[in-house]
Amino acid sequence: MATLKEMASKEELFTGGHRACAGCAFPIAAKLALKAANNPVVVACATGCMEVATTIYPYTAWKSSFIHSAFENAAATISGVEAAWQALTRKGKLDQKFDLIAFGGDGGTYDIGFQALSGAMERGHNILYICYDNGAYMNTGVQRSSATPFGTHTTTSPAGRVQQGKRQLRKDLTQIIAAHGVPYVAQTTTGHWSDYVKKVEKALAVDGPAFINVLAPCRLGWGYPPEDTVKIAQEAVQCCFWPAYEVENGVWRITVKVREKTPVADWLKKQARFRHLFRPGNEGLLEEIQAEVDRKWAELLKRTEESAELSA
């Protein structure tokens, strides 16, 4: 993997001057992905914060090629770019490798872009899809998505007198994509630069589709001070709400060790979107959330242990 010093010496392909909020996490995912690439990059981006903030005509933060088409079709768009690359290379009209990366938020990936993503993964294009998951439709003003955690207050799952935030569990998209049997699937956070860069490098190196789900905190939607963007992502891993792991050719591996599993409530407490859960009478909800995190964590451990046994 490239060292920080090596990365620092590479050309900066993602500039400042974009309009993301101060302390936003997705620019970290964008710029590090470009740093991790070893070929010229074409980015396809779903409608959402990343597209809106980085490409306001006539400004673009991208020094790689970039295409935005619509909300739900980043995966299909990059499929087309890849098909063009295949054909033009085969016909002898092009002699240049490219790293083809699609970005989408959780709304554009888990929800409206889910079908296009599944299709692109199944067809086996040589692409990397990176979902920057901030757990809600942030660009339109924090509406719940299928990535929103249970109990979260959003503008369409508000905490009210009779309902306490989102009533459903979040969709586990990383596992769903792993079930597609593609060569590389991983999840990590924007607070784990080294883990993230390593995963992007691996994902770009495989021949075929790869998917990375990167937790990208949103200070506005989550409600925490902007300087905590890195820390809050790191703590999501330490409380096992968002384990950092990879599934490489079917082998499940945890990539960021959890030294001492912290209570999920400690993490929730730091975010305004969960404030209502700490009101008297909602103790049961906190217990439910912890139980679900424990269940998912145990399930993941089991998978990684099974993988270790099989590959031993």
Partner: peptide
């Protein structure tokens, strides 16, 4: 590595300061 606004200035592989034209003051 964590600056979202590409505002930490490097020269010859060393940090030399902050690009105040673009830094939004997030404090990361």
């Amino acid at each position: 590595v964590y600056c979202p606004d590409t505002s930490i200035l490097l020269e010859d592989g060393k940090v030399v300061g902050v690009d105040y034209d673009h830094c939004k003051g997030c404090g990361i």
